[in-house]
């Protein structure tokens, strides 16, 4: 859906998405990194299970909700990636203790 511009010289950052290594860039938000990765990053909603991807990328729509380092329902569009970060695509309601 998206590709990176050739002029992007930012250093690489490795994150893990559902356990798979994904190359991101320093300064990416988790949502941007997911969309750039080309992986299926669709979450499913807590209400009907409908698939969603980020809509606004500016912190207002909450369609970018994702589990980051074991904590569910984080706004992926507001959290910058960090080396070794564990990201999990969330399915449905947040799980207990996550």
């Amino acid at each position: 859906m998206f590709r990176r511009s050739e002029q992007d010289r930012r250093p690489q950052v490795q994150i893990f998405v559902d356990g798979v290594a994904v190359a991101a860039r320093q300064g990416d938000t988790v949502s941007a990194a997911l969309l750039a990765s080309g992986r299926d990053a669709r979450r499913s909603t807590a209400v009907s299970g409908a698939p969603r991807l980020p809509y606004c990328m500016m912190g207002v729509c909450f369609d970018c909700l994702v589990t980051i380092d074991g904590v569910g329902n984080r706004q992926g569009c507001l959290v910058p990636v960090a080396e070794g970060m564990q990201v999990e695509i969330q399915k449905g309601r947040r799980e207990i203790g996550r």
Partner: peptide
């Protein structure tokens, strides 16, 4: 705006 955010902050098109 979402696309523009990605473009400005991550150079994504």
């Amino acid at each position: 705006g979402a696309a523009q955010t990605m473009l400005k902050s991550s150079g994504l098109v």
